[in-house]
Design a protein around this nucleic acid. Structure first.
Lengths: 189, 189
DNA sequence: TCAAACTTTCAGAAATTACTGAAAATTGGA
DNA sequence: TCCAATTTTCAGTAATTTCTGAAAGTTTGA
């Protein structure tokens, strides 16, 4: 690996972090490299920069494409494939959240739905089912909320985040407001 | 493994999912088992239920304790250690979020802070640094927001989540309200 | 159609991670 | 204090994952 020190430490860090996340070292390093690169890179550029094998690079790029975290492009007059990451860090964040949702959350929800529909054969199973249901409700709620947030435009999102815990106050305020003004209120939920 | 089918499939699923997450099979299975169990279990109960070795169980429990995802308790007149998960799924969720923050996000923030303070030695480094800064800002923002949300009480949190994208409208409403009423407004940010 | 340029696949090697059993350490009570 | 019950550690082994080089596949343009 022969990179400017600043970039090198970034790339190495992502390599290490990869294992804490669900990706391998090479995938992490390549992503990091593309993220900070000021121009698209081809596979040989990457081999040169990271110091891994050509085939490993190919595999890693395939995985990054499956995650939709890198985009492929062609440069005029060059047959090789060039890779880069999207510019918008928010978009990257959203993509990551969507993919993780699809790969890690959906299968669990499916399993839980199935389990919850079974007829329990004992007290232990009845209790287990109740617990699974709690988990299911929580995941569904958080998931929906996340999806809603994901679909906001960047500006709103950024404002929302900067408000931080203020959100809580705004909500309380709005709720008391609507309680005052609405007629059909009564009990929700 | 000799468990009621409903519980068994839950436990096995968590074992598989573990690898997508950062934990190994045994850790995932033990957590799942404790989560649905209607009473605390000791290490031998777990060995019996899961079918792994005693030592592996000991390791896995240590890891789960490090994540603060299981609690240790003693039963009167029994010297063995019994384990269970917290009852409150929200609390579990918060713990998980806090631990991941500490283990996966903080180190990255530290690295980024360091890199951003360096003096770039080339255009490539200058560009890399700008990208790192974008990433840093994003992570900081999301992190703070999450922390704010984590510290809300369960009821508010649940209401907030159920509102979903309504939040967006509430915010816009509140913002136009404050724009009308406040004097010193001008430009924020 | 062919050849050159480039990419992907895949079997096996290397590295890493998970698991086990035996032994050591700890704990609580007699 | 000592003993028995229980937990932890750890070195070696098993399983899994990652990585490589060689070979096969694909694409483009002459």
């Amino acid at each position: 690996m022969n990179l400017p020190p600043l970039i090198q430490s970034f790339v190495l860090h992502f390599g290490e972090m990869g294992s804490h996340w669900g990706i391998n070292r090479t995938v992490g390093q390549i992503y990091a490299l593309l993220y900070v690169s000021d121009k698209p890179l081809n596979a040989d550029d990457i081999v040169e920069a990271i110091g891994c094998s050509r085939s490993n690079t190919s595999m890693a790029l395939k995985e990054l494409q499956a995650w939709r975290l890198v985009k492929l492009q062609h440069l005029p007059g060059d047959r090789r494939e060039y890779f880069s990451t999207p510019d918008d860090v928010w978009a990257i964040f959203k993509t990551l959240a969507e993919e993780r949702q699809k790969r890690e959350v959906e299968p669990t929800l499916t399993m839980l739905r199935g389990a919850i529909l079974e007829t329990p054969g004992s007290d232990a199973e009845r209790h287990a089912q109740a617990r699974m249901n709690e988990m299911y409700q929580l995941i569904e709620l958080v998931t929906k909320w996340f999806a809603d947030i994901r679909d906001m435009d960047v500006d709103t999102l950024q404002k929302l985040m900067k408000l931080g815990s203020q959100v809580q106050k705004v909500l309380q305020f709005t709720q008391s407001l609507s309680r005052l003004t609405s007629r059909d209120s009564g009990k929700e939920e």
